[in-house]
């Protein structure tokens, strides 16, 4: 009888440990969102991606559909080439989809936002997004703002 209770306790303990690990996977980390083995890769070229990192999220309408897998630099055009892995369930993106580097909140993390177009053809594995918009660089924005202020002050 004594050994039976002991074995039950050990069973409960191991189950609790595995359940904790499972909860860490599901509740705490993002295992549920993207299975990296399935899905397809698309590319986009940006003039400036400052702050975007490998593993940054890729979203459509705010819904996370994939993640950035690689960031390369094109030495010919001096552009950043961002490779994105999109989940297999999201294979209906039109070829004229546009991509922009956005920030969540004022100081939040950078992510790639996709804006689907109206074309009937869909993006395939290895496809490239033609329409891109670079990240907003705060210094440039402030510079422009001050310049405009100075211009309007002259009149």
């Amino acid at each position: 009888m004594q050994t039976r209770i002991l074995e039950i306790w050990v069973g409960v303990f191991v189950a609790a440990g595995l359940a904790a690990l499972f909860m860490l996977a599901m509740q705490v980390s993002n295992l549920t969102v993207v299975g990296d083995d399935r899905g397809y890769t698309i590319k986009a070229r940006f003039e400036n991606i400052s702050g975007l990192k490998v593993r940054s999220p890729v979203t459509v309408a705010g819904v996370r559909v994939g993640r950035v897998t690689a960031i390369d630099f094109d030495t010919q055009t001096f552009q950043a080439v961002v490779s994105m892995r999109i989940g297999a369930g999201y294979d209906q993106l039109p070829v004229d989809t546009s991509a922009s580097v956005l920030t969540s909140g004022l100081v939040g993390e950078k992510y790639v936002g996709l804006e689907p177009g109206g074309d009937m053809d869909v993006l395939k594995d290895g496809g490239e997004i033609k329409l891109t918009q670079s990240t907003l660089v705060l210094e440039q924005m402030i510079g422009k703002f001050l310049f405009n202020k100075a211009e309007s002050g002259k009149e």
């Binding site: 609790a16 440990g17 904790a20 690990l21 860490l24 509740q27 705490v28």
Partner: peptide, 16 residues
Amino acid sequence: IIAMPLLAAIFSLVGV
């Protein structure tokens, strides 16, 4: 060896 990773996972989850 078996107990330690399970305990650590429980610790992290409870801490969260």
